[in-house]
């Protein structure tokens, strides 16, 4: 099970044909206290790079893009009650949604952990 990252700071973890998506720990730090997460409805078809969710801190709202294409099969209901999970467990309990991959090849273009780390450091 590998984790991959986008330049827009989403992560995706794939098991079989199911991908779990969230925002990176780095992104969580940049956002500050997350107060609300708007998640996609189950059944929605997402396109890679297109808007999938919205994450809000007190003074900022940011779009979260789908790192890969697919159909949403689950949204993290826990985030509705406790959006702070994004801060405390960005890459674990604070996941956003799961989707069924429609084009696994899209994963190839994403960064692995080391590449993402270097990317973030390069941005700073």
């Amino acid at each position: 099970m590998t984790i991959k990252y986008t330049k827009d700071h989403e992560w995706v973890r794939v098991e079989g044909d199911v991908a779990t998506v969230g925002v990176s720990d780095h992104a969580q730090h940049q956002l500050g206290d997350v107060v609300f997460v708007e998640l996609p409805d189950v059944g929605r078809q997402l396109q890679q790079g297109k808007e999938a969710a919205v994450v809000e801190s007190v003074k900022a709202a940011s779009d979260v893009y789908a790192p890969v294409s697919g159909e949403v099969i689950e949204a993290n209901a826990d985030l509705e009650n406790d959006p702070s999970l994004v801060n405390t467990g960005a890459e674990t309990t604070g996941w956003f949604f799961k989707l069924r991959l429609s084009n696994p090849a899209e994963l190839d273009a994403l960064m692995d952990e080391a590449a993402y780390k270097a990317f973030v450091e390069g941005q700073a």
Binding site: V23, S57, D63
Partner: peptide, 12 residues
């Protein structure tokens, strides 16, 4: 994710 630059410190 589109990082929005309107963010400002709000923590007490």
């Amino acid at each position: 994710m589109s990082m929005n630059n309107q963010g400002r410190p709000t923590d007490i």
